[in-house]
Amino acid sequence: MHIPSPDEVRAIAAIAEPTIRNLRITQCYCELSTAFIGRTGPVANWCTFATWASKQAGQSIRREDLLRSMEARLNLAQLEELKLVWRVAGELGINGGLEQRLHGIIRNAWLASITDRISDAVARGNRKVFEEIGWEFARFFSLCVPDEAFDQQRLDTFCAEFRPGNPPDGQQYLKQAFTNYYQAFFEQDPQLRTELQLLANLEIGFHEQTRLQPEIAASLNAALAVDIEMVRKQIIDSFFPPDSWLARIRLAYLKITGKTSRLDAAIDQLMNRLQGIVRGLLTTHLMTLTIPPDLRLSLGKDLNKPYPAPLLQLSCAGLLAMLSEIDPTPDSVAQSGAIDWADLRERIHFIAELFRCYHFDTALYSDAFTPQQVATMKDGKLPAGRL
Score class of each variant (00 low, 15 high):
P4V: 11
P6I: 06
R10L: 11
A16R: 15
E17Q: 15
R24I: 04
I25V: 14
I25W: 07
A35D: 06
N45S: 11
N45P: 02
W46C: 03
S54V: 05
I61P: 02
E64S: 12
L66K: 00
E71Q: 15
N75W: 00
N75T: 00
L79A: 05
K83P: 02
V88L: 03
A89P: 02
I94H: 01
G96I: 13
E99P: 02
L102Q: 07
W110T: 00
L111M: 11
L111F: 08
S113M: 10
T115M: 02
G125V: 03
N126R: 09
K128E: 12
V129Q: 06
F130M: 09
I133K: 01
I133N: 01
E136Y: 14
F141M: 07
D147A: 12
D147R: 14
E148N: 12
A149Q: 13
D151P: 04
L155I: 07
F158V: 04
K175S: 07
Q176V: 04
A177P: 09
F178P: 00
Q188A: 15
L199C: 09
A200H: 10
A200D: 00
F206L: 15
F206T: 09
P214T: 15
A217E: 14
S219F: 07
N221P: 00
N221E: 09
N221M: 09
A222N: 06
A222C: 04
A225S: 14
A225Q: 14
I228D: 09
I228V: 12
E229P: 02
M230F: 10
V231H: 11
R232I: 05
D243L: 13
S244P: 01
W245K: 13
R250E: 11
Y253A: 14
L254D: 08
I256E: 08
I256H: 07
I256Q: 10
G258V: 06
A266N: 04
L270G: 04
G276N: 13
T284M: 10
T284G: 04
M287F: 05
D302C: 05
D302T: 04
D302K: 05
L303G: 03
N304A: 08
L311G: 04
L312A: 11
C316S: 13
L320M: 13
A321T: 14
M322E: 15
D331M: 12
Q335H: 14
I339E: 03
D343K: 08
R356M: 03
R356C: 01
R356P: 02
H359F: 15
A363Q: 09
P371R: 11
Q372C: 09
M377R: 05
G380A: 09
G380S: 10
P383A: 03
L387S: 05
L387P: 03
